[in-house]
């Protein structure tokens, strides 16, 4: 008997029953198709942007409001200058064609070990916890989120939602199933592994800056 069979047999033995009948299965499948909605955290803030920013900043992230996508390069350049980061970045093509200032080197490929700056488009922002949701794909390379020391994320306000659950609704509406990777990111990488004292930049980005667009 395969390990799989052994385990399934043991599970059913433990539960004191054989395989579920069709009716029981159909009921469970219906629970997946129409997921029951559970209790959520109250987010009664009228101003979701303020809530998002306050929460995100509470974990050492920073935010800035910009008016249009065209403002992204200047905002990134200003940030790079203030932290003395060289004018070079990996940028997901999901952000479209941006007019970068002269002297900037922009790469759309996967992030390599020496990349210091990444610029990405968020898929959703969640006001509840001040988190962003990134999806993987050719236009949104996943390495951009984790390899660079500084990560700048563009979050259009119309993609800012209240709860995690709102992301699931949007994801199901998009109809593509789950992408290969989805990341909720809630601030810079951190560790408390040395004497329970928080240090930023453990392995992922040391700095995270969200450009709230709109």
């Amino acid at each position: 008997m395969s390990s799989r069979d052994t385990i399934f047999k043991a599970i059913r033995q433990g539960l004191g029953r054989g395989p579920l009948d069709d009716a029981a299965r159909a009921k469970l499948d219906a629970r997946i198709a129409e997921p029951p909605q559970h209790i959520r955290a109250t987010v009664d803030d009228a101003d979701l942007v303020a809530r998002f920013a306050q929460r995100f900043e509470s974990r050492s992230g920073t935010t800035e409001r910009i008016a249009s996508l065209a403002d992204v390069p200047a905002a990134v350049a200003a940030l790079a200058e203030s932290y003395a980061i060289a004018p070079s970045a990996v940028v997901g093509t999901a952000l479209g064609e941006l007019a970068w200032p002269e002297g900037w080197q922009i790469d759309h490929g996967a992030a390599t070990i020496d990349v210091m700056l990444g610029v990405s488009l968020a898929w959703r922002g969640i006001a509840e916890t001040g988190s962003i949701l990134m999806l993987s794909g050719p236009e949104r390379p996943i390495t951009h989120n984790f390899v660079p020391e500084t990560h700048v994320v563009v979050l259009p306000v119309e993609h800012l939602v209240r709860h995690y659950e709102d992301c699931w609704v949007a994801l199901r509406e998009a109809g593509q199933g789950a992408p290969r990777a989805m990341n909720f990111i809630s601030g810079p990488s951190r560790t408390g592994d040395v004497e329970q004292t928080i240090e930023l930049g453990a392995h992922g980005p040391r700095r995270m800056h969200v450009l709230i667009l709109g």
Binding site: R31, S131, E165, G177, A181, F184, S186, S189
Partner: peptide, 30 residues
Amino acid sequence: PTLDDLSVFLRILARSATGQETESYTTFST
């Protein structure tokens, strides 16, 4: 079962573990 069920656990895991509202990264691989 579902992503909606998961949301419940995301709200209690970090709070119970480290007292954080959320950890920095929650990552789904498919």
